[in-house]
Simulated assay, not measured.
Amino acid sequence: MHGRGWSFGIRADSAPWFGWMADQGITVYSVDCRLAPPPRWQDAVGDVKCALGWIRSAAIRHGTAASNVSIAGD
């Protein structure tokens, strides 16, 4: 999850890192989250839960392990 404190950033900011992970055989899903303004810290948990649900359904469609998901952010 990008977000830089839920205030700025785009998915493409981490493209080099994602490329490296893909080269290691890791499937990468990069998701957007709501950013401030207005303040969005209270929306963070819901955004992450929504992203994990989307990733799990996408993993099933793409044949990757939906039960083996890790999340990281900048």
Score class of each variant (00 low, 15 high):
residue 41 W to T: 15
residue 12 A to I: 11
residue 38 P to E: 06
residue 8 F to D: 14
residue 37 P to D: 01
residue 52 L to G: 09
residue 24 Q to C: 03
residue 67 S to Y: 11
residue 21 M to E: 11
residue 44 A to T: 15
residue 73 G to Y: 09
residue 31 V to N: 01
residue 69 V to H: 06
residue 26 I to E: 10
residue 57 S to C: 04
residue 9 G to D: 07
residue 6 W to F: 07
residue 53 G to Y: 05
residue 31 V to K: 10
residue 39 P to H: 09
residue 36 A to F: 07
residue 1 M to A: 14
residue 63 G to D: 02
residue 53 G to L: 11
residue 16 P to V: 07
residue 45 V to R: 15
residue 64 T to Y: 03
residue 35 L to S: 05
residue 44 A to P: 05
residue 60 I to N: 01
residue 14 S to D: 11
residue 40 R to G: 10
residue 35 L to A: 01
residue 51 A to P: 05
residue 59 A to E: 03
residue 42 Q to C: 03
residue 58 A to W: 07
residue 16 P to H: 06
residue 3 G to V: 09
residue 35 L to R: 01
residue 40 R to T: 15
residue 68 N to A: 07
residue 26 I to P: 06
residue 55 I to G: 01
residue 8 F to V: 02
residue 6 W to Q: 10
residue 56 R to A: 15
residue 30 S to I: 00
residue 74 D to W: 15
residue 13 D to G: 01
residue 23 D to N: 12
residue 7 S to P: 01
residue 54 W to K: 08
residue 70 S to W: 15
residue 15 A to N: 14
residue 18 F to G: 13
residue 12 A to K: 15
residue 31 V to D: 05
residue 46 G to V: 04
residue 48 V to D: 05
residue 35 L to C: 02
residue 20 W to A: 02
residue 68 N to S: 11
residue 21 M to P: 04
residue 5 G to S: 14
residue 45 V to M: 13
residue 10 I to S: 14
residue 60 I to G: 01
residue 65 A to T: 06
residue 44 A to D: 11
residue 24 Q to S: 01
residue 72 A to P: 05
residue 55 I to P: 00
residue 48 V to L: 12
residue 12 A to F: 09
residue 12 A to N: 13
residue 16 P to A: 05
residue 66 A to S: 04
residue 21 M to K: 10
residue 54 W to V: 10
residue 46 G to S: 02
residue 66 A to P: 10
residue 52 L to Y: 12
residue 38 P to F: 02
residue 11 R to T: 14
residue 17 W to V: 15
residue 34 R to E: 04
residue 2 H to S: 08
residue 69 V to S: 02
residue 37 P to Y: 06
residue 64 T to E: 04
residue 23 D to M: 07
residue 74 D to N: 08
residue 65 A to M: 08
residue 71 I to H: 08
residue 26 I to W: 10
residue 50 C to R: 14
residue 74 D to C: 03
residue 53 G to I: 07
residue 16 P to N: 08
residue 51 A to H: 07
residue 61 R to K: 12
residue 70 S to I: 04
residue 53 G to W: 08
residue 13 D to T: 03
residue 22 A to T: 10
residue 9 G to E: 03
residue 33 C to D: 11
residue 48 V to Y: 07
residue 40 R to C: 13
residue 20 W to N: 05
residue 33 C to Q: 13
residue 28 V to C: 09
residue 58 A to L: 09
residue 49 K to C: 11
residue 32 D to Y: 02
residue 56 R to H: 14
residue 61 R to H: 13
residue 56 R to L: 13
residue 2 H to Q: 08
residue 25 G to M: 10
residue 36 A to I: 07
residue 58 A to G: 02
residue 61 R to L: 07
residue 3 G to Q: 02
residue 14 S to P: 00
residue 12 A to H: 13
residue 23 D to G: 13
residue 5 G to H: 09
residue 43 D to Q: 04
residue 7 S to Q: 11
residue 63 G to N: 03
residue 66 A to D: 10
residue 52 L to K: 11
residue 70 S to K: 12
residue 20 W to S: 03
residue 64 T to D: 06
residue 57 S to T: 12
residue 43 D to P: 04
residue 47 D to C: 09
residue 57 S to F: 04
residue 59 A to Y: 08
residue 51 A to V: 12
residue 51 A to M: 02
residue 53 G to V: 01
residue 39 P to M: 11
residue 34 R to M: 07
residue 49 K to D: 13
residue 20 W to E: 08
residue 3 G to C: 05
residue 11 R to G: 00
residue 59 A to G: 04
residue 30 S to G: 02
residue 37 P to R: 06
residue 60 I to C: 02
residue 46 G to F: 05
residue 22 A to G: 02
residue 36 A to V: 05
residue 67 S to G: 12
residue 50 C to D: 14
